[in-house]
Design a protein around this nucleic acid. Structure first.
Lengths: 145, 145
DNA sequence: TATAATCATAGTATACAAATAGGAATTGAG
DNA sequence: CTCAATTCCTATTTGTATACTATGATTATA
């Protein structure tokens, strides 16, 4: 029951881009230094975010990445699902492919559904903007979004 | 973010013992047939439950297992934590050993705490008795607890 | 044309998941 | 007192996923 580094790093990556946004493209080298994650690993993770259209990339010198939209457009759930895959606590709740023949008589299925909903409820009701705002008001720090 | 088979099977095991309880010890062979899980794997899983005192075992002929307490005494959380380990979605929320030096400046920590609480809230407020009761009222079936 | 960056693909080490296997110890029944 | 059924104990295996690292091609700016 752990969120993998891919999911966690993707979230930190998006937050880093949001917080340090100046309108320019931000190279992964800078993100790497700030977040203490290797550029190579970040490249691998950001690929998915680019393909999903959450992030725009520009090659070459003066290149880098920036969020395609605004921080309030991206929920934690969107980002985690993209990098982690489904957040379902059991496979039988994922799509139609993993149908379990025990489903009808399954005593625990209801529990897993409840758990799934509780998880979704948290991640789908928190945006990047929320996280940044909460952090600022807590610390007294003031990131410029 | 998946519950492993150990956790799921442990839950099914406990539920099976609760539902099929007659006062006698129930051999794993029967549980195995009903739940379609190998006896050998069940043995491995039940060891933990016995050591925790959730289940009592008796060796030899006419031996087997039975719940030490009543179904309402055992929450899903107790059982999952025993077999899965902590249900924390990130390691830094587990005990004092995994302290993260980024904790103070971590923007995502609050989110993980919220997620952790949501998960705990579900599993700690559901007992074996709840699951059985819900199942009976849903299906019209009537297990004898 | 040099440099800084993304983009694409492959490779690797480690740990964990999900079991299986073999046998010793115990108990109850005949 | 022995047999069969069962728990108990410890190892071993197999597969898969995680968490990276490595290499090189492509692209854009100055």
């Amino acid at each position: 029951m752990k969120i993998s580094t891919k999911g966690r790093y993707a979230l930190r990556l998006m937050l880093d881009l949001a917080i340090n946004n100046t309108g320019e493209f931000i190279p992964l080298k800078l993100v790497s230094e700030r977040q203490d994650i290797s550029v190579k690993y970040l490249e691998q993770i950001i690929t998915v975010l680019v393909k999903a259209g959450y992030v725009r990339g520009l090659r070459g010198s003066k290149g880098g990445y920036k969020l395609a939209g605004k921080p309030e457009d991206y929920t934690v759930g969107m980002i985690l699902r993209l990098t982690e895959g489904s957040l379902a606590p059991v496979a039988c709740l994922e799509g139609d492919t993993n149908y379990c023949e025990r489903a009808d008589e399954c005593i625990t299925l209801g529990l897993w559904k409840e758990l799934y909903e509780a998880i979704n409820n948290v991640v789908d009701n928190t945006t990047l903007a929320d996280l940044i705002e909460r952090y600022n008001s807590k610390i007294g720090n003031d990131y410029c979004i």
